[in-house]
Computed example of a mutant assay.
Amino acid sequence: MTHGWVLVGVDGGEAGEAAVEFAARYAAPRGLRLELLHVAPEPAYAASDSAHARIGRQQRHQLLDTAAARARELLGADDPGRVGAEIAYGGRVDRLLAAAEEGCELVVLGDQRRPQVDRLATGSVLAGVAARCTVPVIGVPAGWTPHAQDPVVVAAVKTCADSGVLLDLASAVAAEHGARLRVLQARDVQHAAPGHRGAWEEAARADLARLVATHCDRYPDLKVDVDVVSGQPARVIANASAQADLLLLTRRPLVYSHGHLGGTGRAVLRESRCPVAVLPPPTAGPGSGP
């Protein structure tokens, strides 16, 4: 694999199809390649030569061939080298992270919504990759389709001090697609004294305005809304996703070298109704962003 490519997780389901479509829309105008990866979590079984194992391998190749054909159709490219496909065996999160380390600029994964009890039992591949990957990871809900008119990009800001890269990328994406940018910050101060809540909202709005002035000035025609909301952050951000075409947030640069995806970020990944881009903190590694 070389530079100039997007890694796409393919699982044969509706979520994988949504990931392929989103990735192709991203890659087509940029001339990027797509590398489709299907991870089968049974290395010992796959290594056997039983009839059952051979049938399993055949089915996996068939689903990859179907996904690759769809990707070529969406890219509108005759060059077969624009789309690659591979099967890996082992832990899904670890295999996807290892593939991303080979130089891609973006990872796109589908998110097949499951009951919360299932996620607690099996974990979420999307959250596991988004929490540690050194390049941006976009989770695409199964069945998602973009809005035909009035696109909106939402940048979810936790603290202004750590959100410069987030605003740089969000403003670039919004400008590229002719979208309105909504810069959103939420904090649960509903039960605070009215004077305290009002002071927080005023200060937060002023900080966001300075952040926008510093990081969005390259696009003078970009329409930007600054929004400060008092409420449970995960719920506020998830609600905002219903009117958005892309939502961006950043892992926090805490003690871990790859940063930290906290409870709010994981809840947003789980509940968002639009694609969510999780950006690594600036110290986590290279990545040009979505």
Results as ranks from 00 to 15, higher is better:
residue 1 M to Y: 03
residue 3 H to I: 01
residue 6 V to Y: 03
residue 7 L to F: 05
residue 8 V to Q: 07
residue 8 V to W: 08
residue 9 G to R: 01
residue 10 V to Y: 13
residue 10 V to M: 09
residue 12 G to Q: 11
residue 12 G to F: 05
residue 14 E to L: 12
residue 16 G to K: 10
residue 16 G to H: 04
residue 16 G to Q: 09
residue 17 E to D: 13
residue 17 E to H: 11
residue 19 A to T: 00
residue 19 A to D: 08
residue 20 V to I: 06
residue 21 E to T: 13
residue 22 F to Q: 06
residue 22 F to C: 04
residue 24 A to S: 15
residue 25 R to G: 15
residue 27 A to S: 12
residue 27 A to M: 09
residue 30 R to T: 00
residue 31 G to P: 05
residue 33 R to P: 07
residue 34 L to R: 06
residue 37 L to N: 03
residue 44 A to C: 07
residue 46 A to H: 03
residue 46 A to I: 02
residue 49 D to V: 02
residue 50 S to H: 10
residue 52 H to K: 04
residue 52 H to G: 06
residue 56 G to F: 12
residue 63 L to V: 12
residue 64 L to W: 07
residue 65 D to R: 15
residue 69 A to D: 10
residue 70 R to S: 13
residue 75 L to A: 10
residue 77 A to F: 02
residue 77 A to S: 15
residue 84 G to C: 13
residue 97 L to M: 14
residue 100 A to S: 15
residue 103 G to W: 04
residue 105 E to A: 10
residue 106 L to N: 01
residue 106 L to I: 00
residue 110 G to T: 00
residue 111 D to R: 15
residue 112 Q to A: 15
residue 115 P to Y: 08
residue 115 P to N: 11
residue 119 R to H: 05
residue 120 L to P: 10
residue 121 A to P: 12
residue 124 S to H: 11
residue 124 S to E: 12
residue 124 S to K: 08
residue 126 L to K: 05
residue 127 A to P: 06
residue 129 V to Y: 03
residue 130 A to G: 12
residue 131 A to K: 02
residue 134 T to D: 08
residue 140 V to A: 10
residue 146 P to E: 02
residue 148 A to F: 00
residue 151 P to N: 09
residue 151 P to T: 13
residue 153 V to F: 13
residue 153 V to C: 07
residue 157 V to R: 13
residue 161 A to R: 15
residue 165 V to F: 11
residue 168 D to C: 09
residue 169 L to W: 05
residue 170 A to S: 15
residue 173 V to R: 09
residue 173 V to Y: 02
residue 177 H to Y: 11
residue 179 A to Y: 13
residue 181 L to V: 08
residue 186 A to P: 05
residue 187 R to M: 12
residue 188 D to S: 14
residue 188 D to C: 11
residue 189 V to C: 11
residue 190 Q to H: 09
residue 191 H to N: 08
residue 192 A to W: 14
residue 195 G to V: 09
residue 196 H to L: 14
residue 197 R to D: 09
residue 197 R to F: 04
residue 199 A to F: 05
residue 201 E to L: 14
residue 201 E to V: 15
residue 207 D to W: 04
residue 208 L to F: 04
residue 221 D to G: 15
residue 225 D to M: 01
residue 225 D to N: 03
residue 225 D to G: 02
residue 227 D to G: 00
residue 227 D to H: 08
residue 229 V to Q: 12
residue 235 R to Q: 12
residue 236 V to Y: 03
residue 238 A to K: 02
residue 240 A to P: 06
residue 244 A to R: 00
residue 245 D to N: 14
residue 247 L to G: 10
residue 252 R to C: 02
residue 252 R to E: 07
residue 253 P to H: 06
residue 259 G to R: 03
residue 260 H to Q: 07
residue 261 L to K: 07
residue 261 L to F: 10
residue 261 L to I: 09
residue 262 G to N: 07
residue 267 A to C: 07
residue 269 L to P: 01
residue 269 L to N: 00
residue 270 R to Y: 12
residue 276 V to R: 08
residue 278 V to P: 02
residue 280 P to E: 03
residue 281 P to K: 15
residue 287 G to A: 03
